[in-house]
Amino acid sequence: MFNPSRDQVRQFFFDVWAKYRAGQPLAGAEQPALEAVLAHPEYHALLDQPERHRERDYLPESGETNPFLHLSMHLAIAEQVSVDQPPGIRARYQALLTRYGNAMDAQHDVMDCLGEMIWQAQRDQSAYDPAAYLNCLDRKTGQA
C-alpha cells in the first residue's frame, strides 16, 4: 500500500500544478489530481507558493479546510470508483453524477461520507466500515 508522508503529498500537488502551468505532460495520478485542482480555483494561489504553504497546518478547530487533504480525498474517491471498491460505490457515484450533472458535486457528496467514515473509525479506534460508508451514500442518493 502506498502511504506517502504529509510532505510527499503536498509536494505531489505542488509539482502537478507547476507541471501544468509549464505545459509539461502529466502521468499516472497526476491527471486526476490536476482535474481536482482545476475544479478548485481557490487553491491555485496556494499551489503557486509552495515555500509559503508547504509547512502550514490547517486546523479544523480554526474552521480551516486542509486543501491537500481535500484534493487527496478527490484522488481516493476517483480510485475507489475506478475499481468499484467497496463494491457498489461506482453505482452510487453514478447516481450522484446523474443527480448533479457534474463530477465535483458528486465527489463532494461522496467525500462527506468518506470523511464521516474515517472520523468514526478514528473516534472508535475501529476498522474501516464499508457498509456504513455505502449506507451514507445510499442516504445521499435517496436509496436509503
Score class of each variant (00 low, 15 high):
residue 25 P to W: 09
residue 132 A to Y: 05
residue 59 L to F: 12
residue 85 Q to G: 06
residue 34 L to E: 03
residue 85 Q to W: 05
residue 98 T to S: 06
residue 110 V to E: 06
residue 35 E to M: 14
residue 27 A to G: 02
residue 50 P to N: 09
residue 128 Y to F: 15
residue 121 A to G: 11
residue 61 E to R: 07
residue 62 S to R: 14
residue 34 L to A: 10
residue 31 Q to H: 08
residue 65 T to E: 14
residue 44 H to P: 02
residue 8 Q to W: 02
residue 25 P to Y: 11
residue 124 D to H: 06
residue 94 Q to M: 06
residue 127 A to N: 12
residue 31 Q to G: 07
residue 75 L to H: 08
residue 8 Q to P: 00
residue 109 D to W: 02
residue 61 E to K: 03
residue 72 S to N: 14
residue 88 G to A: 11
residue 11 Q to C: 00
residue 55 E to R: 08
residue 120 Q to H: 09
residue 7 D to H: 10
residue 41 P to K: 11
residue 10 R to N: 00
residue 33 A to V: 10
residue 72 S to R: 12
residue 105 D to A: 10
residue 113 C to S: 00
residue 86 P to F: 07
residue 128 Y to A: 12
residue 80 Q to A: 15
residue 39 A to N: 15
residue 26 L to I: 07
residue 56 R to G: 00
residue 40 H to Q: 14
residue 58 Y to W: 14
residue 56 R to W: 02
residue 63 G to E: 03
residue 20 Y to M: 06
residue 128 Y to G: 03
residue 100 Y to S: 00
residue 70 H to W: 01
residue 28 G to F: 04
residue 21 R to G: 10
residue 127 A to P: 07
residue 29 A to H: 12
residue 66 N to L: 11
residue 74 H to I: 01
residue 36 A to T: 06
residue 103 A to Q: 08
residue 86 P to V: 12
residue 56 R to Y: 08
residue 131 A to F: 03
residue 123 R to H: 13
residue 9 V to H: 06
residue 42 E to L: 11
residue 54 R to W: 00
residue 116 E to A: 05
residue 109 D to K: 03
residue 132 A to E: 04
residue 101 G to F: 01
residue 114 L to C: 01
residue 30 E to S: 05
residue 46 L to V: 01
residue 125 Q to M: 03
residue 121 A to M: 06
residue 121 A to E: 09
residue 6 R to V: 12
residue 104 M to P: 01
residue 71 L to E: 10
residue 60 P to Y: 13
residue 65 T to N: 04
residue 28 G to E: 09
residue 85 Q to H: 08
residue 123 R to N: 10
residue 122 Q to R: 15
residue 75 L to Y: 12
residue 120 Q to S: 09
residue 103 A to S: 01
residue 45 A to V: 02
residue 117 M to F: 09
residue 73 M to F: 15
residue 19 K to L: 04
residue 99 R to D: 02
residue 33 A to Q: 02
residue 62 S to I: 08
residue 109 D to Y: 03
residue 68 F to W: 02
residue 133 Y to R: 07
residue 94 Q to D: 08
residue 59 L to H: 12
residue 22 A to C: 11
residue 11 Q to K: 13
residue 22 A to H: 15
residue 129 D to N: 13
residue 102 N to F: 01
residue 10 R to Q: 07
residue 117 M to Y: 01
residue 86 P to M: 07
residue 30 E to T: 02
residue 74 H to T: 00
residue 125 Q to W: 05
